[in-house]
Design a protein around this nucleic acid. Structure first.
Length: 261
DNA sequence: ATGCCTTTCCCAGAAAGA
């Protein structure tokens, strides 16, 4: 069994690369983020020939999350109970979707960026993470294999950014954000850290500019958080850096996890 | 990097991303 997560930075712009990657990596379940298409505009006809069913939660220009599965897809849940909105409480953004695929429960998340620690978007990010934590609490301690995975927009430790000094005073590394991740782990979720393929750290994101990927100026912000049952099934985990190379890549690389059974 | 790319809106340049 192979599961994966990938922030594609527009499913339409990435469609040829996505199809090629699905054919080569052949994951059974994939969580996607930043589809950037409306609720009914996911190009499902491009992935159904590969055997995937699609559940999408989209809003149009920004955000958008999806789950692709070729082992069944049911009990789809969009959003979070008590989910905060932005810029006002009534404006909910498409940032999470959950589904049962085969014997496991999976949740795809695109955590708000935060923009800057003094920006209202940062407070929204923290409130959104609190709502996520409440939503996954029972799955985290349950006996059904469960993983919440996606773009968390938080680097768990200083080792997860290429230069901690460059992020002083920025989002993604603040104690409050990291405390939210720690709280998720305290609920019974384990950080499935990918093995290192190149350089000292398993980064998953590199800025498009300034040759960041070539210089391995990256961050590990795409995470797989697994409950105990699923964590015990993990055989291997790695970052598919090949998907970040070549023409027209996303700025994120997929994280792939192989499970026993 | 106070945005040096990229994508979306849609045809010009703003907004957003991390």
């Amino acid at each position: 069994m192979r599961i994966a997560t990938w922030n594609v930075n527009s499913v339409l712009a990435r469609l040829p690369r996505l199809v090629e990657w699905l054919e080569q990596a052949a994951p059974d379940v994939v969580c996607l983020q930043e589809t950037k298409v409306g609720a009914d505009a996911f190009p499902g006809e491009s992935v159904t020939p590969l055997g995937y069913e699609v559940a999408h939660h989209g809003e149009g220009r920004w955000n958008g999350v999806a789950i692709l599965s070729r082992i069944g897809l049911r009990e789809v849940e969009r959003g979070l109970p008590g989910e905060p909105g932005f810029p006002d409480e009534a404006t909910l953004q498409a940032r999470t979707i959950a589904a049962t695929c085969g014997q496991m429960r999976v949740r795809s998340v695109y955590v708000p960026n935060g923009r800057a620690p003094d920006d209202p978007h940062y407070a929204y990010k923290l409130r959104w993470l609190a709502a996520l934590r409440a939503a996954v609490a029972s799955d985290a301690t349950g006996q059904v294999p469960f993983a919440v995975m996606g773009d968390f927009n938080i680097a768990p430790t200083d080792a997860d950014v290429w230069d901690p000094a460059a992020f002083a005073g920025s989002t993604h590394v603040t104690p409050h954000e990291r405390a939210e991740l720690e709280a998720l782990r305290a609920h019974g979720l384990a950080d499935v850290v990918p093995r290192i393929a190149k350089g000292p750290h398993p980064y998953t994101y590199w800025d498009y500019r300034a040759g960041s990927f070539h210089k391995d100026m990256g961050m590990r912000i795409d995470l797989v958080y697994a409950n105990a049952v699923l964590a015990a099934m993990v055989k291997d985990a790695w970052v598919d850096r090949e998907a970040r190379k070549g023409k027209g890549p996303s700025d994120h690389a997929p994280v792939i996890v192989d499970l026993s059974t």
